Amino acid sequence: MVSQRILVGEFGRPHGVKGLLKLRTFTADPDAISSYGPLSDEGGTRHFAIEVLPGGIARVQGVADRDAAAKLTGLRLYVSRDALPPPEEEEFYLADLLGLRAVTAEGAELGRVVSVEDFGGGSFLTLRDAAGRDSEIPFTRACVPTVDLAGGTCTIVPPDEVVVEGRSAEDEGDDAA
């Protein structure tokens, strides 16, 4: 499932009193975030022109004081997918993972990828099974060895400490004893 808009950054807390903000970028080159064209909010209704300053700081056009900057804290920034370069071979945008069927190496279905998150400790996939239960899998080569965008699947090898809903106790080993 291909998203038409890609998350490229997020405004953090205000920095100083002149309307500057901390900026968290999700682009390969953090300074390039403003070169992909207009940045917008998730709904695409508000647009932002920014200047990236050293130290992960952003100056937002039209934001001149700390109070105005504070209102933008936590706002996620998106660009049109068309504005981004195509991914290299064996690369993809994380948004491309949404909706993929998650399967075991043997082909058993575990669910679908419903989100990709990163709260600072590394990215992880949230899988939702047919019963609506969620499981979180570290997004590493060891746990997700294959991503097949054309086939609409990703292969999941959960680490021992992660319980994927729907697997039997035998699959989990005899940890309960």
Rank of each mutant, 00 (worst) to 15 (best):
T155G: 01
E51Y: 02
P145T: 01
D171Q: 12
E91I: 10
A68Q: 15
E170G: 13
L23Q: 09
Y36W: 09
V163R: 14
V8C: 00
P38L: 08
A102G: 07
E172A: 13
T155C: 04
T153Y: 05
F48I: 06
T25K: 07
R46M: 07
A70Y: 09
E136T: 14
E10K: 13
I33L: 09
R46I: 10
L110C: 06
V60R: 02
A64H: 12
L125T: 08
E172C: 14
K71S: 15
A28C: 09
T146S: 05
F119Y: 09
D82W: 13
G19S: 10
D148I: 04
A58D: 15
G12H: 08
A142W: 07
A169W: 02
S34W: 00
F26E: 05
A105L: 06
Q61L: 03
G99L: 10
E88R: 06
D41E: 06
A102W: 06
A68G: 11
A169I: 09
G16S: 10
R128H: 04
F139I: 02
A70F: 13
A130D: 08
E42G: 15
D148H: 00
L23K: 08
E106Q: 12
G107D: 07
V147D: 05
G44Y: 04
G132I: 04
E90Y: 00
A49L: 04
T27Y: 01
V60K: 04
Y93K: 03
V116R: 00
P38C: 00
G132T: 01
S80W: 03
V2S: 07
A131T: 15
G9Y: 05
A169P: 12
E117G: 06
Q61Y: 05
P159C: 10
E88V: 14
L84N: 01
L7P: 01
H15S: 15
R13D: 15
S123K: 07
E89L: 06
V63K: 00
A150W: 00
V17S: 15
C154N: 02
E170M: 12
L23V: 12
G122S: 08
E90I: 12
V144P: 03
I156F: 06
T25R: 07
R81E: 09
T104E: 11
G19T: 07
G151M: 01
L100Y: 00
E88S: 14
V114W: 07
G62D: 04
V60Q: 02
V116E: 01
A95Y: 06
G12N: 12
D31S: 09
K22V: 15
R13N: 14
S168R: 09
G151P: 00
V157F: 01
S80H: 02
V63N: 01
S115I: 03
P158T: 08
G55A: 11
G12D: 00
L97I: 09
C143S: 07
A102M: 01
S80P: 01
A102D: 07
D175W: 14
V103I: 14
R24N: 11
S40E: 11
V52F: 04
V60A: 08
P14G: 10
V162W: 03
G121T: 12
A49C: 06
A83H: 09
V113S: 02
T73S: 15
G55K: 08
A95D: 09
A28I: 12
P38H: 05
S168D: 03
D175P: 14
